[in-house]
């Protein structure tokens, strides 16, 4: 038996994203942000998107291109501190922003990927992040109901992949990628290197290929992946 080959052209894979879809995007700052997939989505032009991403990168980088092109209606995130452009869009009401505590965003995505409806946590009780959330008591203590998050698409950046879509990440580029790779109906991964079946050691796989639908090799890395000169 041979595992299926999921290699795909980036533009073909991204063309499946429709207007009003929800799209998870991996990355925390530059590391792990799928810059090439994001550019393909800008070229594709799907609009009215809901993005789920830890942060909004920096002006002129990563998902800021989607914000600039006006394709984003709503952003579910944790922190926009490095992107003044995103903050301006939020403050002027041109995008709707939902802030989550960072680890709660991770758990909501993990729950979505694990087939669980919600997680319970006491994080944020007594703060405005608890506003409007259902409270349940467990062992006599109040917990907020944090609903699971799923998306129509997840855009993932991996260091290495194989033809089946098994993925391995490197250093702090892992972050939200393995969680999001489990939580979308269709998962598109870009990888810096794609190896033949068997060349990515089974013990070294971070995301099993079962979760991944399409994998595309990055022929060259654009300058956006490089160290940011501040």
């Amino acid at each position: 038996m041979r595992l299926p080959d999921k290699r795909c052209d980036i533009a073909v894979a991204v063309a499946r994203i429709k207007d009003s879809d929800t799209v998870m995007v991996g990355g925390f700052g530059v590391p792990g942000t799928p810059m090439a997939l994001i550019h393909a989505l800008v070229d594709h032009g799907a609009r009215d998107l809901t993005l789920i991403k830890n942060d909004a990168n920096e002006p002129g980088m990563g998902i800021d291109h989607l914000l600039k092109s006006g394709q984003v209606a709503r952003l579910i995130t944790t922190h926009l501190g490095l992107n003044s452009h995103a903050i301006d869009l939020m403050n002027s009401g041109r995008i709707q922003v939902e802030f989550n505590a960072q680890g709660i965003l991770a758990e909501r995505i993990r729950a979505g990927g694990a087939g669980i409806g919600a997680v319970l946590s006491d994080i944020g009780i007594g703060t405005e992040l608890a506003d409007g959330k259902q409270v349940v008591e467990v062992d006599g203590k109040p917990h907020l109901v944090e609903s699971a998050l799923r998306a129509d698409f997840a855009l993932i950046h991996a260091d290495r992949a194989d033809h089946f879509g098994n993925l391995a990440y490197v250093a702090t580029a892992r972050n939200f990628n393995p969680l999001m790779a489990m939580a979308a109906t269709r998962v598109i991964a870009e990888a810096e290197t794609i190896l033949p079946l068997g060349a990515l050691d089974a013990d070294a796989v971070h995301t099993p290929g079962v979760f991944v639908d399409h994998v595309a090799e990055l022929v060259a890395l654009s300058g956006e992946y490089a160290v940011v000169q501040r």
Binding site: T77, L80, A101, I123, L129
Partner: peptide
């Protein structure tokens, strides 16, 4: 100033 809470709540609370 409202850039989002990041991981601050969890660090402070836990």
């Amino acid at each position: 100033f409202s850039p989002g809470v990041g991981g601050g709540i969890e660090l402070a609370q836990k």
